[in-house]
Amino acid sequence: MSGPLPQFGRETQQFPVVQRASIRFFRRVTRWWVGLFRDVGVRSYFVRDIARALGDPATYIPETIRQMKNIGVDSIPITLVVAAFIGGVIALQTRYQLFPGVELSIIGLASRLMVVLELGPLLTGLVLTGRVGGRMTAEIGTMRVTEQIDALETLAYDPVAFLIVPRVLAATFMLPTLVILADATGLVSAYTVSVRITDVTPQDFITGLRLGFGAFQIVYSLLKAMMFGMAISLVCSYEGYITEAGAEGVGRSTARAVVITSMTILVLDALTAGVLGPLLQT
């Protein structure tokens, strides 16, 4: 973009003020759109590189196991704690907001629907965005600014296959795994809180828990988790991969990755509810 512009006639400065302002405005809008398309294109190239790197399993499979441990096993405690609190709070709030005359089994139903369909995957995704996504961006970004990635390329290693693909695969498969445990923990917590703290009987809760259950609800939950895992790994890996300007750049990339990933997860959640929600109708 730098360098002398071709002369097509008068220079911009020679136009009247109104025309000059209009030219600047349209130029800014055009640059914004060009930048947007450029971002989409660069990310598409990044995804293409990932897809191409999938053909080199010898490079990414060993690292994938390590990333699965980092993303999955190490995230179990925080995931279960969050799920347990969420399940308990849902049960308590539902019970206390019920007006007299409503069957208490609705607490089991509400707990299942909220935990399995919405809060289990969503909160697990958001929690892992901070814990796993931030770490991912920081790791890859540091490798970028310390030129370790350049060194890998020098050694004929595909950095995408070695650094990005294992994280994408691990997050994509570990998020559903964690969501299964989070859903189960949330429901057990909701049951325990309902039966121990409120006047809900075990039979009431279980009746509601099983009311109108369909296996697609589980599929829906896992599908969302898979999408969230993919979003976390893709966004955070990319932001780390393009990090510039030293330690400050790493920090900036990490913060931006967490924000973009959180927004992406919320948008995906809304899209999923809009597209797949009708299939959940009983």
């Binding site: 196991i65 699965m68 441990k69 999955g72 096993v73 179990i76 299942r112 498969f173 570990m174 559903p176 795994t177 964690l178 299964i180 445990l181 859903d183 189960a184 828990l209 099983r210 259950f213 369909g214 296996a215 589980i218 896992l222």
Partner: peptide
């Protein structure tokens, strides 16, 4: 550790779904 996690998750998924259904 990853194997244990995945196994536990699959067992919970299958048994939980069967029990709910």
């Amino acid at each position: 550790s990853v194997g244990i996690l995945i196994t536990v998750a699959v067992v919970v998924l299958v048994l939980g779904t069967l029990w709910l259904a």
